[in-house]
Design a protein around this nucleic acid. Sequence first.
DNA 1: CTAGAATGTTAACGGCGCTCACATTAGCTC
DNA 2: GAGCTAATGTGAGCGCCGTTAACATTCTAG
Lengths: 203, 203
Amino acid sequence: MPSTKATYHHGDLRAACLSAAMELLEESGETALSLRAVARRAGVSPAAPYRHYADREALVSAVAALGYRELAQRLAAAHPSPSTPEQLTSVAVAYVQFALERPALFRIMFGEPCNRDNEERTAATAAVTLYLREIVARVFPDTDAEAMATATWALVHGLAFLHLDGKLDASTPSAVADRVTAAIHALLSATSHSGRASAVLPS
Amino acid sequence: MPSTKATYHHGDLRAACLSAAMELLEESGETALSLRAVARRAGVSPAAPYRHYADREALVSAVAALGYRELAQRLAAAHPSPSTPEQLTSVAVAYVQFALERPALFRIMFGEPCNRDNEERTAATAAVTLYLREIVARVFPDTDAEAMATATWALVHGLAFLHLDGKLDASTPSAVADRVTAAIHALLSATSHSGRASAVLPS
DNA sequence: CTAGAATGTTAACGGCGCTCACATTAGCTC
DNA sequence: GAGCTAATGTGAGCGCCGTTAACATTCTAG
């Protein structure tokens, strides 16, 4: 018998709402997250979550924060501490795959008009930023770390969104991986050739 | 007296809905587009738009398509036919500024789970894709045009979204422009293995 | 002129976010 | 343990939303 049930008080509804929300996001591919659905899933009345989350935005921010942590895990799993462009590329592929495998979560993390002053959320994104900057500084030691980190994040983030929106074909994971790799490679090799804009060098 | 009013039939409700939607998007910075609000703005009953749009998605797609056209105009205004990295950068800045000046529209264009098979929408994005590839092929003649076009679009698109979501500071337009420029230059001057990163672009 | 297509209105359904009054319980104090 | 208080749940209800169905008005073709 589950000790957390059959009682008027739920036990830990706050956490239960969070995992219910995660479940719903995994199941229903693209539909928006509804507080009432979360309450239903948690086996609780529609008003109950409001004891733990000020409003829908608060729940969404908590979900997003959790999403950032899971994304960080996923990236670290792709490569613990990349130090070459190839390794960085594998991290980039992992980023895009995360977005494609969990589109609803990714959209909540980045797609919604967000609450800037939610501390949990900003803290989680700050962690991602830091992690990324560290990696970039290691892979490209002789560049402006901040600008380079911004650029790579934006590049990868943009690739994720364009695939997510169907602007780029995302039918098979390997095709996506190839495209991401090709895009990064193209950008990184652009300079050596176009150091002077008018110089057309043989490839 | 306005000839288009005071009659039972509206005249051109389809177009009126579109422009009403645009107005609402400009006014209410970030709130979602509601079909009922559009109907109110057009001075018509809540059910009337359904004679011209199958559902909310259809209206949203039409708005998005119009947004793509306006974005294309805006990019062309930044530079009619860029052929150097600097000129391309100015187009990139225009892209990000468009996103920041019209966040609600931009979110509708890219942020919503979109209807892949809406022809108007796909046609408009195809136009953007083509335009971009053409530019990129001109600026970087000796690279794989498709990969490079994908990469630059993703980079710029990612920059736009990260600013939009507050992941990057977007308080002043000039700061944004500087960051975009710096990011692009950082990427273009980053050479992985072949070392020399200091070969910056001719200014 | 008239029939029917096109385009509008009104009313209604269910789902949503959210609030308020109320019920139940947990935990602290004595 | 008994009793008070705060925390946490329920239920009813508000207004908004998307959407549909039945009905009204107007345009247009024959």
